[in-house]
Write a protein that binds this DNA or RNA. Structure first.
Length: 742
DNA sequence: TTAGGGTTAG
């Protein structure tokens, strides 16, 4: 936006110095009388737009609407108060023939606080074109708007207006100017404004410190902090929050100690900041101390603090204490619900998260975008497509105009992970402004569904639109190559990422490459890559190499790799299972027995296989040889029928696998009782013929179940979409989309 | 002769 430029001036303000007209009409009665007028008093008591309209009517009835003062108060209330209504304020504003400066300032202020601050700038243009001179109150609202929408260009023009009017020495204008530059990433200019002025109170210092903190310049921030003549509580808070934000929790907590030593009384924000540092660093002891401090202070029942406590306890893993505090709340706001739901998802208790969400819907608190982001990630994890769809509809209805497009990205992720890649593509294609995250979500979605061609096309489209890929984009691309078994292409992307895009490979990228090379049997290249890594390979990388050894029957290499894994992750039974299977493949039964014994002696328990399926919005979970599902009798009856039909169709179970391998659901006996087959049987009896069955398994699907499921899809004429630990399998007409490569 | 700046769940 270009603001009006005066033809007579090299600076930008045209009408400022020329015509200022006078403000209050002569009809305005004495102020004292106005201030004590009952309608104006009532205004401050309004709690809704309806109340407001009644007071407005009374103001008109008593003739007060002819005074600028009453109109000012009315507009101020409508525009600023949480009970007001900005649209109503604008309506009123437009009806005033010659708004005075106070009225202009307050309508601008209202928009600066709104979700649409650009209107504040547009109103400012009108204000100066109308010949009303802005004052030191006008500018902080404008700079706040510029900061909120990143309007540096406009901010600079308005800065010129400030200079022209000689207002740069107003403390409020000064600080909001620093803040505008700092928030818009122009730290140099923020510093210039700060250095040029003699106005150096804690507030202006803090504005600049926050700017440095947001860019990670902690040393500069700290130097400034040490220079503040009189540090107030907000400056302490900002510095503590700064350390916490960049993960330097010890320094954050040390500063908090220091603050108490110099007798600065912590306030609500201090405690929120400290609790969030405790939450992130897992310092539940300090958290407990903070809790007793809070309970012994006037802040005892402060909702924000209890919310922060709930958040702290759940992030530290003490969900019980968190839930106790949550249940003890007499009044819960949306944040209370969000932290508790987020606590469950953070600790992987997705079912509890969804149960709580349902409870929230029944209470009188409206979910917001944060709630939905949390719930969508739980849906994605559980494969709860029905609830995910419901949330999609809810977003369409209530959040259509929201600028936060992470909700759409989250929907893409949810649909992809719930097995509905078409719906994911639809959401993606309907997005007006696609963020990098949304491109990434779509690319990885296509990758896990085994559509490397589509993922690659999307990547090219993205480049054509001038969007620069990041490291996550390449994880998606490389995993597309892994799932499709395309080592050559993977190699090309890996090299392109480093040389064309200047992105240094992280653990994830190496993981994809080593998986890809290993499974293609290119062990020499995989080993070379591992040796040349800048960081130590993690358990996941060694595991994928071990998996490749199993596929290719590389016993000796497998033994070496397994040793590395035993050392790195002594409590992970996966490595033992894989090594045992490698021995089994080579018919080395003594070694198989030795490894089994070692496993048993160490008292390790394999993660039990578990498959979930959602029917009519309810998520049902089945474990291997399930004995708890209420409909298990019918399920096992169906299972017998399935086995009979499989036999008729000529299916011979590969029992050798059960005898030889301790497969992913080891020790659990009969193949037909694997959790995915139980879930499929349940799906067959509880959905209409022809309905797609979607299941989610926590482990990788075993070879025997994979073959059986292919045939089941044909016999029962059902599409079966299965998500396992690594990827998706779309079973249809006797075939699987993974082309038996997984 | 009505008002304004810096910290604050993910």
């Amino acid at each position: 936006m270009v603001l009006p430029v005066s033809p007579s001036s090299s600076l930008s303000l045209p009408i400022l110095s020329s015509s200022t007209h006078h403000i209050l009409p002569a009809s305005d009665p004495p102020y004292k009388l106005l201030q004590s007028h009952p309608s104006l008093y009532l205004l401050s008591k309004c709690k809704s737009l309806q109340d407001l309209k009644q007071v407005h009517a009374q103001i008109i009835k008593t003739g007060l609407h002819n005074t600028h003062f009453a109109l000012s108060k009315l507009i101020e209330f409508c525009a600023i108060s949480p009970y007001g209504d900005l649209a109503y304020a604008l309506l009123l504003f437009e009806s005033i023939e010659e708004p005075n400066r106070f009225i202009w300032n307050n309508i601008i202020r209202g928009y600066s606080l709104s979700s649409n601050p650009i209107v504040a700038l547009e109103l400012y243009v009108r204000m100066i074109l109308c010949g009303t001179e802005p004052n030191s109150y006008t500018f902080p609202f404008l700079f706040k708007s510029c900061a909120k929408i990143g309007a540096t260009h406009e901010g600079k023009q308005i800065h010129a207006h400030v200079v022209k009017l000689g207002l740069e020495n107003d403390a409020f204008v000064h600080t909001s100017l620093i803040n505008m530059y700092a928030q818009n990433g122009e730290l140099g200019n923020a510093r210039l404004v700060f250095d040029k002025s003699t106005l150096r109170d804690a507030v202006s210092f803090t504005a600049l410190i926050t700017g440095y903190v947001s860019r990670g310049f902690m040393d500069d921030a700290r130097r400034l902090f040490d220079e503040i003549p009189v540090r107030d509580v907000v400056s302490w808070n900002a510095m503590i929050a700064g350390y916490a934000q960049c993960g330097r929790f010890e320094e954050a907590l040390a500063l908090f100690e220091e603050m108490r030593k110099v007798n600065v009384q912590p306030n609500e924000s201090t405690m929120v900041t400290v609790l969030s540092a405790c939450a992130q660093s897992g310092s539940v002891e300090l958290g407990n101390w903070v809790r007793s401090w809070i309970e012994n202070s006037v802040l005892g029942s402060n909702l924000r603090l209890v919310n922060a406590l709930i958040d702290m306890y759940s992030k530290c893993g003490d969900l019980e204490t968190a839930r106790g505090l949550f249940d003890g709340l007499h009044q819960r706001d949306v944040i209370s619900w969000n932290v508790m739901i987020g606590g469950y998802t953070h600790r992987s208790c997705y079912k509890e998260a969804l149960t709580l969400f349902h409870l929230m819907l029944r209470s009188n608190v409206e979910p917001n975008d944060v709630t939905l982001l949390g719930v969508l990630s739980a849906c994605a994890y559980l494969g709860a497509l029905d609830l995910g769809k419901w949330i999609h509809a809810y977003i369409d209805k209530n959040f259509q105009h929201m600028t936060n497009n992470s909700l759409w990205t989250s929907l893409i992720d949810m649909y992809a992970k719930c097995g509905n890649i078409d719906a994911a593509e639809q959401v993606f294609n309907n997005m007006n402004l696609k963020s990098l995250a949304s491109w990434n979500a779509m690319i990885s979605g296509l990758a896990m569904h085994g559509h490397p061609d589509k993922a690659i096309r999307l990547f090219e489209e993205m480049a054509n639109e001038g969007i620069k890929p990041d490291d996550i984009t390449f994880v998606g691309l490389l995993s597309a190559c892994t799932h499709a078994g395309l080592p050559e292409l993977g190699r090309q992307y890996f090299s392109s990422m480093i040389h064309d895009f200047n992105i240094s490979p992280k653990l994830h990228h190496y993981g994809c490459m080593i998986d890809l090379l290993g499974r293609a049997g290119m062990f020499d290249e995989a080993e070379t890559l591992m040796k040349n890594m800048e960081m130590k390979p993690d358990g996941a990388i060694w595991s994928s190499l071990l998996g490749a050894c199993r596929v290719h029957g590389r016993v000796e290499l497998g033994e070496y790799v397994a040793e590395q894994l035993f050392e790195l992750e002594p409590d992970n039974p996966g490595a033992y299972v894989l090594l045992s299977n490698i021995y089994a493949g080579a018919c080395r039964w003594d070694d198989v027995a030795r490894i089994r014994n070692r496993l048993t002696n160490m008292g390790m328990k394999k993660v039990p296989g578990c498959t979930s399926i959602e029917v009519d919005g309810v998520v049902h979970e089945f474990v291997v040889s399930d004995k708890v599902h209420p409909l298990r009798k019918d399920v096992y009856k169906m299972l017998d029928e399935i086995d009979r039909l499989l036999e008729v169709a000529g299916f011979v179970p590969d029992t050798s696998e059960v005898l030889r391998d301790i497969d992913e659901e080891w020790k659990e006996g009969a193949l037909s009782h694997h959790s995915e087959k139980l879930a499929i049987a349940f799906g067959l009896i509880s959905t209409k013929p022809g309905t797609t069955i979607r299941i989610v398994k926590n482990l990788r699907v075993c070879g025997n179940c994979h073959s059986a499921t292919k045939l089941i899809s044909k016999i029962f004429n059902r599409e079966i979409i299965a998500r396992d630990k690594n990827r998706f399998h779309h079973f249809k007409d006797g075939f699987c989309s993974c082309k038996d490569y997984w």
